[in-house]
């Protein structure tokens, strides 16, 4: 599915912005509107746009990781974040936080890791669905 040159060129500049925005949404989600779900969906939309402009194969290359692996990894990340408190001797899924703030990210704790897992999973699931369907049509 090749599209117009205008779209392709526009997308080239918009995509990085969208991806940065999605990352921004993920990180600030704990205190401002955003979070893993919204961030992951925005990123997925960016890749979907890319796929419409340049074709699925290009988009897959651009993503550079198989979406199936991506969402498995996301699920695993979320699971690990839930298991981490066990190491600290706390019940499953208790939020554990580092005392010191880290630049850019802010406070780091297992809920943030969990949110990153959600982000990766949502991105992986959405791209998987859209790429499979698009491939089907080609």
């Amino acid at each position: 599915m090749k599209s117009s040159l205008i779209l392709a060129t526009t997308v080239k500049y918009i995509i990085p912005l969208l991806l940065i925005f999605s990352f921004f949404l993920l990180l600030r989600g704990h205190n401002e509107p955003g979070g893993g779900f919204a961030g992951g969906l925005v990123a997925a939309a960016a890749y979907a746009l890319y796929a419409i402009a340049n074709g699925v194969e290009e988009a897959e290359k651009f993503l550079s990781i198989e979406p199936l692996k991506l969402f498995s990894f996301g699920l695993l990340t979320a699971l690990i974040s839930a298991l981490l408190p066990l190491l600290a001797g706390k019940p499953f899924m208790t939020g554990v936080w580092l005392d010191n703030k880290i630049p850019v990210i802010g406070k780091l704790g297992t809920p943030i890791i969990f949110d990153v897992g959600v982000y990766l999973l949502v991105l992986g699931v959405s791209t998987k669905i859209i790429f499979s369907l698009a491939q089907e049509e080609e």
Binding site: G29, H30, G34, G35, G36, M93, K107, P111, V118
Partner: peptide
């Protein structure tokens, strides 16, 4: 407890993370 101001997100990733 949840160290977040966005309550919706704190519910999602902490209080009701399961």
């Amino acid at each position: 407890i949840g160290k977040g101001r966005n309550i919706v997100n704190v519910i999602l990733v902490d209080f009701r993370a399961l």
